[in-house]
Amino acid sequence: MSYLSIEHLDKSFVRGNLASQVLKDINLNIAKGEFISIIGHSGCGKSTVLNIVAGLLDPSLGGVILDGKEVRGPGPDRSMVFQNHSLLPWLTVYENVEVAVNKLFKRSMNKRERRDWIEHNLALVNMSHALNKYPQEISGGMKQRVGIARALAMKPKVLLLDEPFGALDALTRAHLQDEVMKIQKDLGNTMMMITHDVDEAVLLSDRIVMMTNGPSATIGEILDVKLPRPRDRIALADDPEYNHYRRAVLSFLHERHRLH
């Protein structure tokens, strides 16, 4: 019995009397605590899948079931980390997380508990030093950390990440990948992440979902990554098994489903 299941998902965008099918018959079952990456060429429909799971978009056909309930509309049980962080620029780091915590846990936690919970989540992503800074005063990597803290603070059933590290430099990205791996190990979150970075996908995922090119994109192949955890990027660099997975994804993207 899977925790999150995507069933026979079709999505067409209709503009005027012109319908263009973006997704066709996507089926995916995700277990609790699993880390899934979705990889595919730009424009194939990865964000569309994630937005449907988030409830920000409605499917044309099929549906999403989370923990036994059909997804209808957005909700905090599927919190999202956006590529462009989407922090509110008029609020401090602390307040950006506070907005979420106050909205969701006003009744279940008292003032002190809420404050501790906000600070706890910001500490998880190593942002305790900048609680009173505004988003425009911190670096891109730090903004993304706060975005992750905000999403975690919602206690979601699934954490959805849409190319969370895409806009970051390689060093910052590696750092944040390690932090996400540690958080997932400690908290056991179910995560669904979109990426276009092959190394990132292999390093972080339990399974890599590889999508075919659009229009009418679907799942081409699913790769089980059986590398033991915790995973260490340096040790894996010349690990034959790691390179085997890496090669499998590269070959899917650049040989069998090349963009023409």
């Binding site: 988030a54 957005p74 905090p76 989407s86 509110l88 907005v99 979420a100 909205k103």
Partner: peptide
């Protein structure tokens, strides 16, 4: 920006909360 609207939707802010926390400041 759509991003801020998405945040509000995920948090399921009601009309007044949306007005106060997102709409007016934005």
């Amino acid at each position: 920006p759509q991003d801020y609207r998405n945040v509000a939707q995920v948090l399921q802010l009601n009309g007044f909360e949306y007005f106060k926390t997102i709409m007016l400041p934005a």
